[in-house]
Simulated assay, not measured.
Amino acid sequence: MDVDPITRGNRFCERFGGQFPVMLAPMAGACPPALSIAIMKAGGWGAAGCLMMQPEQIAAWADEVRSAAGSAFQLNVWIPETAPRPEPDREAEWRHFLSRWCDTPAPDPLPSPLPDFAAQCEAMLAGRPAAISSIMGVFPAEFVAKLKAAGIPWMASVTTVAEAKEAAQAGADVIVAQGMEAGGHRGTFDQSAAEATQVGLSSLLPSIVDAVDVPVVATGGIADGRGIAAAFMLGASAVQIGTGFLRCTESAIPSSWKDAIGRALPEETILTRAFTGRAGRAIDTAFARTAARPDAPQPAAYPWQRLLTQPMTAAARDDDDIDRMQAWSGQSGGLAGEGPAGDLVENLWQAAREHLSAARSRR
Protein backbone atom coordinates (compact mmCIF):
# COMPACT_ATOMS: atom_id res chain seq x y z
CA MET A 1 0.00 0.00 0.00
CA ASP A 2 2.85 2.31 -0.92
CA VAL A 3 0.78 4.32 -3.44
CA ASP A 4 -2.73 5.76 -3.39
CA PRO A 5 -5.52 3.36 -4.40
CA ILE A 6 -6.35 4.90 -7.80
CA THR A 7 -2.70 4.86 -8.84
CA ARG A 8 -2.48 1.23 -7.73
CA GLY A 9 -5.44 0.35 -9.93
CA ASN A 10 -3.96 2.22 -12.89
CA ARG A 11 -0.70 0.33 -12.52
CA PHE A 12 -2.56 -2.96 -12.47
CA CYS A 13 -4.19 -2.11 -15.80
CA GLU A 14 -0.91 -0.94 -17.32
CA ARG A 15 0.66 -4.28 -16.44
CA PHE A 16 -2.17 -6.72 -17.08
CA GLY A 17 -4.72 -5.00 -19.35
CA GLY A 18 -8.11 -3.32 -19.31
CA GLN A 19 -8.87 0.38 -18.99
CA PHE A 20 -9.88 0.13 -15.34
CA PRO A 21 -9.45 -2.57 -12.69
CA VAL A 22 -12.96 -4.01 -12.51
CA MET A 23 -13.20 -7.65 -13.55
CA LEU A 24 -16.08 -10.01 -14.24
CA ALA A 25 -15.76 -13.11 -12.07
CA PRO A 26 -15.38 -16.36 -14.05
CA MET A 27 -18.67 -18.10 -13.22
CA ALA A 28 -19.11 -21.52 -14.82
CA GLY A 29 -22.32 -21.59 -16.83
CA ALA A 30 -23.09 -17.90 -16.25
CA CYS A 31 -20.53 -16.05 -18.40
CA PRO A 32 -21.89 -15.89 -21.96
CA PRO A 33 -19.67 -14.10 -24.48
CA ALA A 34 -22.12 -11.18 -24.69
CA LEU A 35 -21.62 -10.31 -21.01
CA SER A 36 -17.83 -10.21 -21.27
CA ILE A 37 -17.93 -8.31 -24.56
CA ALA A 38 -20.13 -5.59 -23.06
CA ILE A 39 -17.92 -5.22 -19.98
CA MET A 40 -14.71 -5.23 -22.02
CA LYS A 41 -15.95 -2.65 -24.52
CA ALA A 42 -16.68 -0.36 -21.58
CA GLY A 43 -13.16 -0.81 -20.19
CA GLY A 44 -13.39 -3.69 -17.71
CA TRP A 45 -12.31 -7.32 -17.85
CA GLY A 46 -14.29 -10.27 -19.19
CA ALA A 47 -14.13 -13.86 -17.96
CA ALA A 48 -15.15 -17.43 -18.66
CA GLY A 49 -15.52 -20.19 -16.10
CA CYS A 50 -14.29 -23.17 -18.12
CA LEU A 51 -15.09 -25.91 -15.59
CA MET A 52 -17.58 -27.79 -17.77
CA MET A 53 -16.36 -26.60 -21.19
CA GLN A 54 -14.75 -28.93 -23.69
CA PRO A 55 -11.56 -27.64 -25.38
CA GLU A 56 -13.42 -26.70 -28.55
CA GLN A 57 -15.95 -24.70 -26.50
CA ILE A 58 -13.13 -22.82 -24.78
CA ALA A 59 -11.61 -22.00 -28.18
CA ALA A 60 -14.95 -20.83 -29.58
CA TRP A 61 -15.64 -18.60 -26.55
CA ALA A 62 -12.19 -16.99 -26.70
CA ASP A 63 -12.39 -16.44 -30.47
CA GLU A 64 -15.81 -14.79 -30.26
CA VAL A 65 -14.87 -12.47 -27.40
CA ARG A 66 -11.47 -11.51 -28.82
CA SER A 67 -12.86 -10.72 -32.26
CA ALA A 68 -15.46 -8.41 -30.71
CA ALA A 69 -13.60 -6.76 -27.84
CA GLY A 70 -9.92 -7.68 -27.62
CA SER A 71 -8.07 -9.87 -25.12
CA ALA A 72 -8.71 -8.30 -21.69
CA PHE A 73 -10.33 -11.46 -20.32
CA GLN A 74 -9.39 -14.35 -18.09
CA LEU A 75 -10.06 -18.04 -18.55
CA ASN A 76 -10.57 -20.00 -15.34
CA VAL A 77 -10.61 -23.65 -14.36
CA TRP A 78 -10.91 -25.64 -11.15
CA ILE A 79 -7.87 -27.61 -10.01
CA PRO A 80 -9.12 -31.21 -9.97
CA GLU A 81 -8.93 -33.63 -7.10
CA THR A 82 -8.88 -37.38 -7.56
CA ALA A 83 -12.48 -38.26 -8.31
CA PRO A 84 -14.02 -40.18 -5.40
CA ARG A 85 -15.58 -43.54 -6.03
CA PRO A 86 -19.34 -43.64 -6.63
CA GLU A 87 -21.45 -44.32 -3.55
CA PRO A 88 -24.42 -46.42 -4.70
CA ASP A 89 -26.27 -46.33 -1.38
CA ARG A 90 -26.02 -42.54 -1.07
CA GLU A 91 -26.94 -42.10 -4.72
CA ALA A 92 -30.03 -44.22 -4.12
CA GLU A 93 -31.01 -42.02 -1.17
CA TRP A 94 -30.67 -38.91 -3.32
CA ARG A 95 -32.58 -40.38 -6.25
CA HIS A 96 -35.48 -40.98 -3.86
CA PHE A 97 -35.13 -37.51 -2.28
CA LEU A 98 -34.96 -35.78 -5.68
CA SER A 99 -38.02 -37.65 -7.01
CA ARG A 100 -40.11 -35.16 -4.98
CA TRP A 101 -38.55 -32.30 -6.96
CA CYS A 102 -38.12 -33.65 -10.48
CA ASP A 103 -39.81 -36.35 -12.57
CA THR A 104 -36.63 -37.10 -14.54
CA PRO A 105 -34.03 -39.09 -12.60
CA ALA A 106 -30.31 -38.85 -13.22
CA PRO A 107 -28.86 -41.60 -15.44
CA ASP A 108 -27.90 -44.84 -13.72
CA PRO A 109 -24.98 -45.33 -13.74
CA LEU A 110 -23.90 -41.71 -13.68
CA PRO A 111 -21.90 -40.61 -16.75
CA SER A 112 -18.21 -39.74 -16.92
CA PRO A 113 -18.10 -36.62 -14.77
CA LEU A 114 -15.67 -34.02 -16.11
CA PRO A 115 -13.80 -32.82 -19.22
CA ASP A 116 -10.11 -33.64 -19.51
CA PHE A 117 -8.20 -31.13 -17.36
CA ALA A 118 -4.95 -31.24 -19.34
CA ALA A 119 -6.82 -30.66 -22.60
CA GLN A 120 -8.68 -27.73 -21.03
CA CYS A 121 -5.37 -26.20 -19.94
CA GLU A 122 -3.95 -26.49 -23.45
CA ALA A 123 -7.10 -24.89 -24.88
CA MET A 124 -6.83 -22.00 -22.42
CA LEU A 125 -3.21 -21.43 -23.46
CA ALA A 126 -4.22 -21.43 -27.11
CA GLY A 127 -7.02 -18.95 -26.32
CA ARG A 128 -4.39 -16.25 -25.61
CA PRO A 129 -6.25 -14.50 -22.76
CA ALA A 130 -4.85 -11.64 -20.72
CA ALA A 131 -4.69 -14.09 -17.79
CA ILE A 132 -5.46 -17.67 -16.84
CA SER A 133 -6.86 -18.21 -13.36
CA SER A 134 -7.23 -21.13 -11.00
CA ILE A 135 -9.47 -21.95 -8.08
CA MET A 136 -9.46 -24.72 -5.46
CA GLY A 137 -5.73 -25.30 -5.63
CA VAL A 138 -2.62 -24.43 -7.62
CA PHE A 139 -1.64 -25.40 -11.13
CA PRO A 140 0.91 -28.18 -11.61
CA ALA A 141 4.48 -26.89 -11.97
CA GLU A 142 4.69 -28.00 -15.59
CA PHE A 143 1.66 -25.91 -16.54
CA VAL A 144 2.99 -22.92 -14.61
CA ALA A 145 6.15 -23.22 -16.71
CA LYS A 146 4.04 -23.17 -19.87
CA LEU A 147 2.23 -20.04 -18.67
CA LYS A 148 5.54 -18.31 -17.99
CA ALA A 149 6.90 -19.31 -21.41
CA ALA A 150 3.77 -17.97 -23.11
CA GLY A 151 3.86 -14.73 -21.12
CA ILE A 152 0.35 -15.31 -19.74
CA PRO A 153 -0.12 -14.21 -16.11
CA TRP A 154 -1.50 -16.71 -13.61
CA MET A 155 -4.18 -15.40 -11.22
CA ALA A 156 -4.67 -17.77 -8.30
CA SER A 157 -7.90 -17.65 -6.26
CA VAL A 158 -7.48 -18.25 -2.52
CA THR A 159 -9.59 -18.11 0.62
CA THR A 160 -6.95 -17.97 3.38
CA VAL A 161 -3.58 -16.37 4.00
CA ALA A 162 -1.90 -19.79 3.99
CA GLU A 163 -3.35 -20.53 0.55
CA ALA A 164 -2.15 -17.14 -0.70
CA LYS A 165 1.40 -17.88 0.42
CA GLU A 166 1.28 -21.31 -1.19
CA ALA A 167 0.05 -19.89 -4.51
CA ALA A 168 2.64 -17.09 -4.51
CA GLN A 169 5.41 -19.59 -3.83
CA ALA A 170 4.11 -21.73 -6.70
CA GLY A 171 4.55 -18.81 -9.10
CA ALA A 172 1.22 -16.96 -9.16
CA ASP A 173 1.50 -13.48 -10.66
CA VAL A 174 -1.70 -12.24 -8.98
CA ILE A 175 -3.62 -13.45 -5.93
CA VAL A 176 -7.43 -13.29 -6.01
CA ALA A 177 -8.64 -13.05 -2.41
CA GLN A 178 -12.13 -14.58 -2.15
CA GLY A 179 -14.07 -13.55 0.93
CA MET A 180 -16.73 -15.78 2.44
CA GLU A 181 -19.38 -13.35 1.12
CA ALA A 182 -18.82 -14.57 -2.45
CA GLY A 183 -21.57 -16.31 -4.37
CA GLY A 184 -21.04 -19.73 -5.89
CA HIS A 185 -18.41 -22.22 -4.86
CA ARG A 186 -15.86 -21.62 -2.13
CA GLY A 187 -12.36 -21.72 -3.57
CA THR A 188 -10.88 -23.48 -0.54
CA PHE A 189 -7.92 -25.71 -1.43
CA ASP A 190 -9.08 -28.32 1.09
CA GLN A 191 -12.74 -28.77 0.29
CA SER A 192 -13.41 -30.66 3.51
CA ALA A 193 -12.57 -27.42 5.35
CA ALA A 194 -14.74 -25.08 3.27
CA GLU A 195 -17.23 -24.41 6.05
CA ALA A 196 -14.58 -24.16 8.79
CA THR A 197 -12.30 -21.64 7.05
CA GLN A 198 -14.74 -18.88 6.19
CA VAL A 199 -13.07 -15.47 6.42
CA GLY A 200 -14.78 -12.19 5.52
CA LEU A 201 -13.14 -10.03 2.85
CA SER A 202 -12.42 -7.08 5.14
CA SER A 203 -10.20 -9.34 7.30
CA LEU A 204 -8.82 -11.54 4.53
CA LEU A 205 -7.81 -8.86 2.04
CA PRO A 206 -5.39 -6.72 4.08
CA SER A 207 -3.87 -9.84 5.65
CA ILE A 208 -3.09 -11.26 2.21
CA VAL A 209 -1.81 -7.90 0.93
CA ASP A 210 0.65 -7.90 3.83
CA ALA A 211 1.65 -11.54 3.26
CA VAL A 212 2.53 -11.61 -0.47
CA ASP A 213 4.58 -9.50 -2.86
CA VAL A 214 2.25 -9.69 -5.87
CA PRO A 215 -0.90 -7.67 -6.68
CA VAL A 216 -4.08 -8.79 -4.94
CA VAL A 217 -7.55 -8.77 -6.50
CA ALA A 218 -10.51 -8.58 -4.08
CA THR A 219 -13.66 -10.62 -4.65
CA GLY A 220 -16.69 -11.57 -2.59
CA GLY A 221 -19.55 -9.28 -1.56
CA ILE A 222 -18.57 -6.41 -3.88
CA ALA A 223 -21.48 -5.04 -5.90
CA ASP A 224 -21.35 -1.23 -5.79
CA GLY A 225 -18.91 1.68 -5.80
CA ARG A 226 -18.66 1.70 -2.00
CA GLY A 227 -17.53 -1.92 -1.97
CA ILE A 228 -14.96 -1.29 -4.69
CA ALA A 229 -13.57 1.75 -2.88
CA ALA A 230 -13.38 -0.15 0.40
CA ALA A 231 -11.44 -2.97 -1.27
CA PHE A 232 -8.94 -0.50 -2.71
CA MET A 233 -8.55 1.21 0.67
CA LEU A 234 -7.67 -2.21 2.10
CA GLY A 235 -4.92 -2.73 -0.47
CA ALA A 236 -6.55 -4.31 -3.52
CA SER A 237 -5.11 -3.59 -6.96
CA ALA A 238 -8.35 -4.65 -8.70
CA VAL A 239 -11.75 -6.09 -7.88
CA GLN A 240 -13.62 -9.05 -9.29
CA ILE A 241 -17.43 -9.04 -9.33
CA GLY A 242 -19.73 -11.98 -10.00
CA THR A 243 -23.23 -11.66 -8.54
CA GLY A 244 -23.11 -7.90 -9.11
CA PHE A 245 -23.23 -8.48 -12.89
CA LEU A 246 -25.82 -11.27 -12.97
CA ARG A 247 -28.82 -8.94 -13.24
CA CYS A 248 -27.43 -7.20 -16.34
CA THR A 249 -29.19 -7.31 -19.69
CA GLU A 250 -26.48 -9.54 -21.19
CA SER A 251 -26.58 -12.09 -18.37
CA ALA A 252 -28.16 -15.34 -19.52
CA ILE A 253 -29.57 -16.53 -16.20
CA PRO A 254 -33.36 -16.98 -15.81
CA SER A 255 -35.47 -14.00 -14.80
CA SER A 256 -36.59 -15.55 -11.49
CA TRP A 257 -32.93 -15.90 -10.49
CA LYS A 258 -32.24 -12.27 -11.40
CA ASP A 259 -35.28 -11.17 -9.40
CA ALA A 260 -34.27 -13.28 -6.40
CA ILE A 261 -30.78 -11.75 -6.38
CA GLY A 262 -32.28 -8.26 -6.38
CA ARG A 263 -34.51 -9.07 -3.40
CA ALA A 264 -32.03 -11.02 -1.31
CA LEU A 265 -30.80 -9.61 1.97
CA PRO A 266 -27.30 -10.71 3.03
CA GLU A 267 -28.73 -13.19 5.53
CA GLU A 268 -30.96 -14.74 2.86
CA THR A 269 -28.12 -16.67 1.24
CA ILE A 270 -26.77 -19.95 2.58
CA LEU A 271 -23.72 -22.14 2.16
CA THR A 272 -24.82 -25.49 0.76
CA ARG A 273 -23.38 -28.69 -0.69
CA ALA A 274 -26.78 -29.93 -1.86
CA PHE A 275 -26.34 -28.94 -5.52
CA THR A 276 -22.84 -30.18 -6.31
CA GLY A 277 -21.27 -31.81 -3.28
CA ARG A 278 -19.00 -28.80 -2.77
CA ALA A 279 -19.80 -25.82 -0.58
CA GLY A 280 -21.29 -22.88 -2.46
CA ARG A 281 -23.27 -19.78 -1.48
CA ALA A 282 -26.77 -19.67 -2.96
CA ILE A 283 -30.17 -18.04 -2.54
CA ASP A 284 -32.08 -19.64 0.35
CA THR A 285 -34.59 -21.45 -1.88
CA ALA A 286 -37.15 -24.10 -1.00
CA PHE A 287 -34.92 -26.93 -2.22
CA ALA A 288 -31.82 -25.61 -0.46
CA ARG A 289 -33.75 -25.26 2.81
CA THR A 290 -35.24 -28.74 2.55
CA ALA A 291 -31.86 -30.28 1.71
CA ALA A 292 -30.42 -28.66 4.85
CA ARG A 293 -32.93 -30.34 7.18
CA PRO A 294 -31.57 -33.00 9.57
CA ASP A 295 -33.69 -35.70 7.93
CA ALA A 296 -32.32 -35.00 4.42
CA PRO A 297 -29.58 -37.29 3.09
CA GLN A 298 -25.99 -36.12 3.28
CA PRO A 299 -24.79 -34.87 -0.13
CA ALA A 300 -22.71 -37.20 -2.22
CA ALA A 301 -19.17 -36.16 -3.07
CA TYR A 302 -18.41 -33.87 -6.00
CA PRO A 303 -18.96 -34.43 -8.91
CA TRP A 304 -21.53 -37.16 -8.27
CA GLN A 305 -23.91 -34.83 -6.39
CA ARG A 306 -23.84 -32.36 -9.29
CA LEU A 307 -24.74 -35.13 -11.72
CA LEU A 308 -27.56 -36.35 -9.46
CA THR A 309 -29.16 -32.89 -9.21
CA GLN A 310 -28.51 -31.87 -12.81
CA PRO A 311 -31.92 -33.02 -14.18
CA MET A 312 -33.69 -30.99 -11.47
CA THR A 313 -31.62 -27.85 -11.96
CA ALA A 314 -31.94 -28.07 -15.75
CA ALA A 315 -35.73 -28.41 -15.47
CA ALA A 316 -35.82 -25.50 -13.04
CA ARG A 317 -34.02 -23.25 -15.54
CA ASP A 318 -36.37 -24.36 -18.31
CA ASP A 319 -39.39 -23.65 -16.11
CA ASP A 320 -37.89 -20.48 -14.55
CA ASP A 321 -38.61 -22.06 -11.16
CA ILE A 322 -36.46 -20.44 -8.48
CA ASP A 323 -37.48 -22.97 -5.80
CA ARG A 324 -35.53 -25.79 -7.51
CA MET A 325 -32.85 -23.69 -9.18
CA GLN A 326 -29.13 -23.74 -8.49
CA ALA A 327 -29.31 -20.02 -7.80
CA TRP A 328 -25.84 -18.95 -6.69
CA SER A 329 -25.61 -15.52 -5.09
CA GLY A 330 -23.18 -13.57 -2.93
CA GLN A 331 -24.25 -11.75 0.21
CA SER A 332 -24.39 -8.36 -1.57
CA GLY A 333 -26.77 -9.50 -4.31
CA GLY A 334 -29.36 -6.97 -3.23
CA LEU A 335 -26.94 -4.22 -4.33
CA ALA A 336 -26.56 -5.62 -7.85
CA GLY A 337 -27.50 -3.20 -10.61
CA GLU A 338 -29.60 -3.80 -13.71
CA GLY A 339 -29.39 -2.67 -17.33
CA PRO A 340 -26.55 -2.93 -19.86
CA ALA A 341 -23.35 -4.34 -18.39
CA GLY A 342 -21.24 -1.68 -20.09
CA ASP A 343 -23.14 1.12 -18.38
CA LEU A 344 -22.97 -0.67 -15.04
CA VAL A 345 -19.21 -1.25 -15.07
CA GLU A 346 -18.54 2.37 -16.04
CA ASN A 347 -20.82 3.63 -13.27
CA LEU A 348 -19.25 1.29 -10.72
CA TRP A 349 -15.72 2.51 -11.38
CA GLN A 350 -16.79 6.16 -11.51
CA ALA A 351 -18.58 5.82 -8.16
CA ALA A 352 -15.56 4.08 -6.67
CA ARG A 353 -13.24 6.85 -7.86
CA GLU A 354 -15.51 9.48 -6.32
CA HIS A 355 -15.49 7.67 -2.97
CA LEU A 356 -11.70 7.29 -3.09
CA SER A 357 -11.18 10.92 -4.07
CA ALA A 358 -13.46 12.09 -1.28
CA ALA A 359 -11.56 9.95 1.24
CA ARG A 360 -8.26 11.36 0.04
CA SER A 361 -9.49 14.97 0.29
CA ARG A 362 -10.53 14.41 3.93
CA ARG A 363 -7.03 13.45 5.00
Rank of each mutant, 00 (worst) to 15 (best):
E122Y: 15
G187E: 07
Q331A: 09
I6F: 11
L335M: 09
Q57G: 09
G70S: 01
A118D: 12
E166D: 14
A252M: 15
P26T: 12
L75Y: 11
F20V: 03
D295N: 04
R100T: 09
I270N: 03
P88W: 10
A223H: 13
Q198S: 10
A351Q: 10
T309L: 08
P80W: 07
A162R: 15
A260F: 03
M53I: 05
A279W: 15
A60T: 10
L147S: 00
W61E: 01
A59W: 02
M325C: 07
A38M: 03
L147R: 09
Q298L: 13
V239K: 08
A264V: 00
G330A: 03
Q191C: 11
K148Q: 15
E142W: 06
M40I: 06
I152M: 02
T272P: 00
A68W: 03
C102I: 06
S237A: 13
N347K: 15
A315F: 08
E166P: 04
R8N: 03
E142T: 14
C121W: 04
I261M: 06
R263P: 07
P33N: 05
A162V: 11
R15S: 15
R273W: 06
M155G: 10
S251R: 10
W45P: 00
W101A: 01
E142D: 15
D213M: 00
A47M: 08
A292Y: 07
A282E: 03
V138Y: 08
F189E: 00
E14H: 04
M27C: 06
A131C: 09
T197C: 11
S256W: 14
A282W: 02
F20Q: 00
R281A: 04
R363Q: 04
R293M: 10
A358K: 04
I135Q: 13
A47C: 13
R289G: 10
T219Y: 02
